[in-house]
Design a protein around this nucleic acid. Sequence first.
DNA 1: TAATTTATTGCAATCGATTGCATTATATTG
DNA 2: CAATATAATGCAATCGATTGCAATAAATTA
Lengths: 342, 342
Amino acid sequence: MSNKKVSIYDIADYLGIASSTVSRALNDHARISEKTKEEVRRVAKVLGFEKNHLATGLITNQSLTIGVVVPAVNRNFFASAITGIEKIASENGYTVLICQSHDLYDREVELFDTLIANRVDGIIVSLAINTEQFDHFRKARDTGIPLVFFDRVCDEIEDTFKIVVKDFEGAYLGTSHLAEQGFKRIAHIAGYQSQKIFRDRLAGYKQALLDANLPYDEKLVKYCQLTTEDGTGIAEELLQHPPGPDAFFCANNLTAISAMAYALNHHIKVPQEMGIVGFSEETVSSLLKPSVTSVRQPCEEMGTLAAQKLLEEINQEPAGQLDFKEIALSTELIVRESSTPH
Amino acid sequence: MSNKKVSIYDIADYLGIASSTVSRALNDHARISEKTKEEVRRVAKVLGFEKNHLATGLITNQSLTIGVVVPAVNRNFFASAITGIEKIASENGYTVLICQSHDLYDREVELFDTLIANRVDGIIVSLAINTEQFDHFRKARDTGIPLVFFDRVCDEIEDTFKIVVKDFEGAYLGTSHLAEQGFKRIAHIAGYQSQKIFRDRLAGYKQALLDANLPYDEKLVKYCQLTTEDGTGIAEELLQHPPGPDAFFCANNLTAISAMAYALNHHIKVPQEMGIVGFSEETVSSLLKPSVTSVRQPCEEMGTLAAQKLLEEINQEPAGQLDFKEIALSTELIVRESSTPH
DNA sequence: TAATTTATTGCAATCGATTGCATTATATTG
DNA sequence: CAATATAATGCAATCGATTGCAATAAATTA
């Protein structure tokens, strides 16, 4: 290990000045002469100085790091949201610690402990699918760490920002569209109802059926974790015994894609014999054959907004009351081939 | 801000003992009585103590954090690799800082500075596509931070572990397969040749043509950044003017999918009139219609291996010589519909 | 009981950067 | 030139956990 570590003391010794002067010079403090600043910067470069954030964080009580906890990064939605978060963070000199809960409650709790121990300045989180206890959130807040929820939010915790989309509206749009296209027996691949977003999507689906004068058949609604396997399995289950559905409105896009794949593999024509609409876009939604109609969420915007709100809370000056609230962004239906037989 | 911060001093005061005793108790030090340990742990819990990693890191000179720099997390390959890295890291008490270079050299350099400033104990990196200068890697190593490259590695830096797949072999497999299936004019959507992996894939492609007695036509090889747009664009370019190719061997899977989408949209039948093989799997490869033949890489294994090697280097006891080398894992051809007309 | 081990615990310095206050150098004014 | 204002720099404490060494308490032995 050529573990060289150059500190401000080395620079100070080199120049025969005080470390405090070096510190101020590096931080461009107003009370240090321009001449000294230049010399310090020069020597810092020569010696290969790298500021130690740990030391800074220890004394300033902030790490300039924000934690992000999402179920998984390999989903387009979360990856895009993270991109948005990173953008805002790096613009403001913050580093982002990205963690995956893999949709496991226990892992989520662990991650929170780690983040707190690492003294992140704030946490942005989208709940694991089976998170139904919230003490880890409370603990973070008690420790003084601001929290922002996005997508899968936690209603039991108040006084935090929550960034969501209008899930009801999105589901309503998607389902209505299928109804308009003439589909009569629209199934819904739903997420577990412990999550508000999935309750809302189910509600939007129901309302759309109602408004289209279609009967609501609870046998056509299946609850699952929304994996690709779930999509295939549910499609198989529903299509085996007639009368099956003639369309699927799916609570995410993975299940839309996999349900469609199942149909196509069993010689069911999409969209002629089977309509498909998914919630949230994947990169490939437009590339599939047929391309998949989807409710588009402003993923990246949700990320930037979440980060902005978090930084707002972190840096709030008089520790005054922020206007915490749920911010619901609009969705947009991207109509493609999978739902338009005509 | 109810910014409570409980330190070991608070525990010490509460119990009327020394902070050093508290520290040792919490670390389960052998020279502290079991009775004291229990009391300390109890009080720590009561007071809501959270160890401050910054302080620990400052004095032990290690942060128990490793940095990961990848082009983007929304690609299946990188997401899976990260999952592997996280697994090993968390098993060993390490936290992972995930960063996206977005395939930009400048961003990659910036990220390295941030990681160094945050005193990560090591860095795992897959190069941005246009990284052709390597001073940031050298700087990290000079600072004593171990480095492991994976996938897109840097040959100019020696004495580091490099985890790759047998790119030549994979490309050879994929291309030979197309030849065996009777395709004669096999195009190659290639990555920029500044990256070794793309040079190797091109080489494997060429060798396969040679061994199949097919002519090598440089007009059928197109270099790009391998985005979906690139795939579509190149497919369009090559297919407009006959004689176009009758198959595509693509250096990644996104371009395979988008090239296939272009073909299907222009009423070219896949695989009857056009064969497609991609490198590296995406989640949807098997779900597409037709499903996409791909060279499978052991993504997660690459991640675990990279993390293991990194930790090995971080924790090497006598700072002895490690047997640095490039480790090349095998690939596997997953044959699906897009390449098998018969 | 005194002497010697051994088991526990405490003291105090340390990591590196920050910052309020004191001090010195320089500039301005009467 | 003395007196005051202003600019520039230094001193020293601080953040919280760790750790070598010293000190004390408890246990063992002579």
